[in-house]
Amino acid sequence: MDSTKSSVSAASVITDFKEITKMGLSISVVFSALAGYLLGVETISFTTLTLLALGGYFMVGASNAYNQIIERDLDALMDRTKNRPIPAGRMSVNTAFVIATSFTILGLITLYIINPKTAMWGAISIFLYTSVYTPLKTKTPLAVFVGALPGAIPFMLGWVAARNDFGIEPGTLFAIQFFWQFPHFWAIGWFLHDDYKKGGFFMLPTGKPDKGTAVQIILYSAWTVIVSVIPVFGFTGDLKLSIVGAILVFGLGMLMLVYAFKLFKLRTTKAAKQLMLSSVFYITMLQIIYVADKFLR
């Protein structure tokens, strides 16, 4: 009986750890960073790849843990978040703080081993996410703009890890992921609008899921596609994209735009969910196409 209890509690501890660090989201962020590294590197170092994956996970995990500590009272009000470890009472604030602090230190050390610039950008992302974005979420829809800054760092961070330099190339990668986040998060804000309202979060640009928000989603989706094909024109330094790669990325962008227009037309939660999924598909495939295009060229 005791062994059953201990195995159940061990399983729940692992589940809570995964939830406090948002493992799924963290892994997708690490994927972006690794893609950026592969784009920037001349000779792949598996040591650096491993350090970047670990450091990236620590940094995102720390940001998510801090976020859940700060928002614990609001999380308890929303169906989406009320079963998170802290509001559900399965994890103390102190335990979460120890995890967040440990992850911050481990993340900074790991990224610093790669190079100091990578650690600096990692530190900036944690600071912006925790100290600026999180408090603003209950104050203004501009929080999404602020949140898009740390959210755009991982893709760029990979390039900085590869080159120990910040220039037009990582700047372009930053811009792609920056613009992409608006249709992505506004789609989430749309289908979770009622739940977010319970926690007092203002995620949509007009404050509600209306035509004005849908128009802005279309505009930012278009900007995302435009920025994503810029490397084909050859003025983004070492970041290059072949015509075939640009056509594939443009085609993906058109697919996302179709769903953005669909949301404008229907204005339903189902259409918002479809746009969200298409935006995830877009950024994932874009990164795969960029990397494949570099190595197959």
Rank of each mutant, 00 (worst) to 15 (best):
D2Q: 10
S3G: 08
K5E: 13
A10P: 03
A11F: 11
V13W: 09
V13A: 08
I14D: 03
D16K: 02
K18G: 12
K18C: 15
M23E: 03
L25M: 14
L25K: 09
S26F: 01
S26E: 04
V30I: 09
V30P: 01
G36M: 03
L38T: 06
S45C: 08
L51V: 12
L52V: 00
A53R: 03
A53K: 03
G55I: 01
F58R: 01
M59C: 14
V60P: 00
G61A: 05
G61W: 06
S63D: 07
Q68E: 03
I70F: 10
L74W: 05
L74M: 11
D75A: 02
L77Q: 08
M78C: 10
D79P: 05
R80G: 02
T81C: 01
T81I: 02
P85A: 02
P85E: 00
A88D: 01
R90P: 00
N94E: 14
A96L: 01
V98E: 09
I99G: 00
S102M: 05
I113R: 02
P116C: 13
P116T: 14
T118S: 10
T118F: 00
A119V: 06
A119F: 05
W121Y: 14
G122M: 09
A123Y: 06
I124Y: 11
L128F: 11
Y129K: 01
V132W: 09
V132M: 15
Y133N: 00
T134I: 06
L136I: 02
K137E: 01
T138I: 09
T138D: 04
L142G: 11
V144Y: 03
V144F: 04
F145C: 09
P150W: 12
F155K: 04
F155N: 01
A162K: 00
A162D: 00
R163G: 02
N164K: 06
D165T: 10
D165C: 10
I168G: 11
P170V: 04
G171D: 11
L173I: 13
A175R: 03
Q177L: 13
F178R: 00
W180R: 06
P183R: 06
H184Y: 10
F185E: 04
I188F: 07
D194V: 07
D194Q: 12
D195G: 06
Y196W: 11
K197A: 14
K198W: 08
K198C: 07
F202A: 09
M203Y: 07
M203W: 03
L204Y: 03
P205A: 00
G212K: 10
Q216E: 10
I217Q: 04
S221K: 08
A222P: 09
W223S: 15
V225H: 08
I226R: 07
P231C: 13
T236P: 08
G237F: 14
D238P: 06
I247R: 07
L248I: 14
Y259N: 13
Y259H: 15
K262H: 12
F264H: 11
K265I: 13
K270E: 14
M276I: 02
L277N: 14
L277Y: 15
Y282C: 04
I288G: 15
A292V: 14
K294T: 04
K294E: 05
